[in-house]
Amino acid sequence: MTSSGSPSDVASGDVVLVVVDHQGTTVRNPALELLTAARAIGRPEAVWLGGDAPAGAALETLGTHGAGVVHHLAVDPGGLLPAQVAQVLRVAVEATGARTVLLTSTFENKEASAHLAFHLGAGLVVDAAGVERDDDGALVTVQQAFAGTWTLRSVVTAEHAVVALKANAVPAEVVDGAPVPQVVAHPVVADASVGGATLVERTERPVSERPSLTEAQVVVVGGRGTNGDFSAVEDLADALGGAVGATRVATDEGWIGHEAQIGQTGVTVSPRLYVGAGVSGAVHHRGGMQSSGTIVAINNDPEAPIFEIADYGIVGDLTTVLPQTAAEVRRLRAESGEA
C-alpha cells in the first residue's frame, strides 16, 4: 500500500483511532495491521476496550506499531451488543476529536461500525482492503466487489469516516525507536438498554491450536470432495502452519464447525496462500477467498470452476496429493534445517 505523494500536514497530523482487537492481554495481528495502515493516513491512537488497561508486552507492541496514545475504555467488549460498542467508541471519538476510526472487519465490528457511523454522520466502508489519502487529504478506500472480480476505489465525502479493514490487507510493520505509548483512561457508562436488547448469553469458542482463520497466512480448505474425512486437510494445514477452512457443503454436513465456512455467508479470508481440496469453486465460496495471494486447487474434475482462478491447479485425487504434499513440505523443511 502506498500513501499518496505528500499527504498535507493537516492530514498527517490527523488522529486516526484504531480499535484494537485483542484476546485477553494479547494483541491480535489484525490490530497491528490497522495501526500500520493508520500511519499512512494520519497519527494512530489505539482504543482498548477491556476490564484492564493494556500493560507490558501488549502496550509495547501497540507502541512499536505506531500508537502514540492508548485510550482505555473499561468495559468488556464481549459483554456488549454492537449498538453499545458504538456508544462506548463515541466516548473516544469525542475525547480526541478524531475524524477517522478504523476497525477490523468482522461481522460484529461491521454492526458496531454502522451504529458509530450513524451517530457521527460518518461515511462508512466495510471489508476494505486498503486506505490512503488523495492529494487533497481526503480519505480513499480500496474494496473488492462481486466475489473479488472488481476493485473499487472510493472517497469519503463526509467529515468523519468509519472504515472496517479486512485482516491481512496490509502487512503489519514496526516503527523503529517508538516510545511506549501513554495510556489515557476515559470514564464509560455502557447504557445497558440501547434499544432495549439484552445479551442473554455468550459462549466463547475454545481457542484452537491452529492460527485463526481470518488471520492465518496459509489456509487449507476442504470441500465435499473430502467425503467427510478432513484428516488430510488438517495434516497439510499443520505442515504449512496454517488454518483449516471449509465450504458450506462441508459445514452443513457437520464434517467441521460452521465457523470454518469460507464464503459470502461465512468468513472472508485473504491469506498469502489458499489451498482448496475437493472444492468446486462456486461463486458463493469465491466471494470469501478470491483476494487470496496464491490460490492452489486440487480437484479430480478438470472442468471444476476453481481452476479458472487457481494460480496452481492439480487435476488429481486429494487423498493422494495432500499427504504427498505434506510429507514433501516436512522433508524440505527438515533438509533446510528449520524443522
Binding site: 481452476f307 487457481a310 494460480d311 496452481y312 493422494t320 495432500l322 504434499t325 514433501e328
Partner: peptide, 19 residues
C-alpha cells in the same frame, strides 16, 4: 497460471512450487 494432471508426483511438485 499452472494446471497439471497428477501422474503420481503432483504433491511433491506442489511442495517444490510452494518452497
Amino acid at each position: 497460471r499452472v494446471l497439471v494432471t497428477d501422474d503420481g508426483g503432483a504433491g511433491t511438485q506442489l511442495a517444490a512450487y510452494l518452497v
